[in-house]
């Protein structure tokens, strides 16, 4: 396919890895900000979830961009790995790395494990397939509405002032994301899988973020060491914040009322 012709060049492939990586990282940050609202209680989190679903087209654009990024990221990494393996058919008897740390050498393995988790995570919380009893949670919320006065056409409605209508509270149903997350994380196995996956993600990011800067040419003698420290700290912070959610649920700090 023409879209994959960039794979013929190792440099272009690396640039594709970096750009798709940046898009996926932006999602990781956005998703974290959304998730952290669990600490604010059920109301803000469920309202946020409702808001995400209400923006329809934009949500789908984001989903499509993320899906394409993920597919390109995975295909490119697998392709590059096959090139890299064939470029070094005989390994050294003595392996003695000077700078390559375990995080950079395990990118493919951590990447595959993260992908496996993403698949499970989507089946669990987005599609509600693996644990429908967690997913099928709804709450009733009160909304303001106006009572329609008898036989009035739409044209007439528009010209009528607001005070012509009687205001009433109506009950609507919405997805109770808060309850779903709390029930999900109360299962210690699900929490453990989540924690392991997020730690692997942090490990992946600790090499990925600085690699993005490097591949995209954002480097300098003073900037690079500073940037490398910052990306490590940033990866640790992201990991800790994500991990804090299942731990808080397991400790009963969040979701006590569920």
């Amino acid at each position: 396919m023409a879209i994959f012709s960039f794979l013929r060049s190792t440099v272009l492939s690396k640039i594709v890895m970096a750009i798709t990586g940046v898009l996926l990282l932006l999602f990781i940050i956005g998703h974290l900000v959304g998730n952290l609202q669990i600490y604010l209680g059920p109301e803000p989190l469920n309202t946020y979830a409702q808001f995400l679903k209400s923006i329809g087209e934009i949500l789908w654009i984001v989903r499509i961009v993320l899906f394409v990024s993920l597919v390109l990221h995975i295909i490119t990494s697998l392709y590059l790995s096959s090139i890299n393996n064939s470029a070094k058919p005989v390994k050294y008897q003595v392996v003695n790395y000077a700078k390559a740390k375990i995080n950079s050498r395990s990118m493919l393995v951590t990447g595959i494990m993260i992908f496996a988790f993403i698949t499970y995570h989507l089946l669990h919380f987005t599609f509600g397939i693996t644990n429908p009893e967690h997913y099928e949670q709804h709450e009733l919320t009160v909304k303001k509405a106006y009572v329609l006065p008898g036989n009035v056409s739409e044209e007439q409605l528009k010209s009528m002032p607001k005070n012509c209508f009687v205001e009433q509270n109506i009950l609507t149903e919405r997805h109770d994301v808060y309850k779903m997350v709390v029930l999900g994380f109360r299962n210690p196995f699900i929490s453990l899988a989540y924690i392991v996956a997020v730690v692997l993600l942090g490990f992946h990011l600790s090499h990925a973020i600085k690699s993005c800067f490097h591949t995209l040419g954002v480097t300098g003698p003073k900037f690079t060491p500073w940037m490398e420290r910052c990306s490590t700290i940033f990866s640790i912070i992201i990991t800790l914040l994500y991990v804090s959610i299942p731990i808080s649920v397991l400790l009963g700090l969040v979701g006590g009322g569920v």
Partner: peptide
Amino acid sequence: MDKEGFGACRNYYE
């Protein structure tokens, strides 16, 4: 470089 069968950079810095 690509034709000669060299690998790609993974930023190991070795």
